[in-house]
């Protein structure tokens, strides 16, 4: 039996979850960085219009959220890319996507013709947006589960 060729193959197989997790967190982090940047390059009021059009929050909260959420997204993206405290940042990302998806679903059910507000101004909420949001939520959940499993394996 040729042990020299089987050992690297086994090592690569053992490492694939690590690579998958790395790819997942880089994509997720990139998405958050872009989402934050896209909102920050425009006046915060445009994002406030989008949040307010969901008709969920009072206007005072809308203004605060419009000013702070893009910074939070940017920070979360950077931390996700860096891989620091991945279990908790991935959990936060999943939580955000669950909240965003619920708000979008509610708007869709209420037949509100609104802007998504996901990546800056002027993005209509529609089936394509839902598919994309669903894929991101699945990715965030995958990274979260992966991060916890990795941690368990290490300890």
């Amino acid at each position: 039996m040729d042990t020299a060729s089987t050992i690297p193959v086994t090592a690569a197989r053992a490492n694939w979850p690590r690579w998958l997790l790395l790819a997942g967190r880089l994509i997720l982090g990139g998405v958050f960085i872009y989402a934050g940047y896209a909102k920050l390059r425009e006046p915060w009021m445009l994002f406030a219009f989008s949040i307010n059009s969901y008709q969920i929050l009072p206007e005072a909260i809308v203004s605060i959220l419009a000013r702070t959420l893009p910074w939070f997204e940017l920070l979360l993206g950077i931390v996700l890319v860096s891989g620091v405290a991945l279990r908790w940042t991935a959990t936060a990302a999943s939580g955000l996507f669950i909240l965003f998806s619920a708000a979008m679903l509610r708007a869709y059910v209420k037949n509100l013709s609104i802007d998504c507000g996901c990546f800056g101004y002027g993005e209509k909420l529609g089936p394509l947006r839902f598919t994309f949001e669903g894929a991101l939520l699945a990715l965030a959940l995958g990274v979260t589960i992966g991060a916890f499993l990795m941690h368990r394996r290490r300890t």
Partner: peptide, 20 residues
């Protein structure tokens, strides 16, 4: 020119945007 989402366009927000 910017199209603002009508459902979210309250006077307070429109005013802040115009002031900006």
């Amino acid at each position: 020119t910017v199209q603002i989402p009508a459902q979210g366009a309250t006077y307070a927000l429109v005013k802040q945007y115009i002031d900006y």
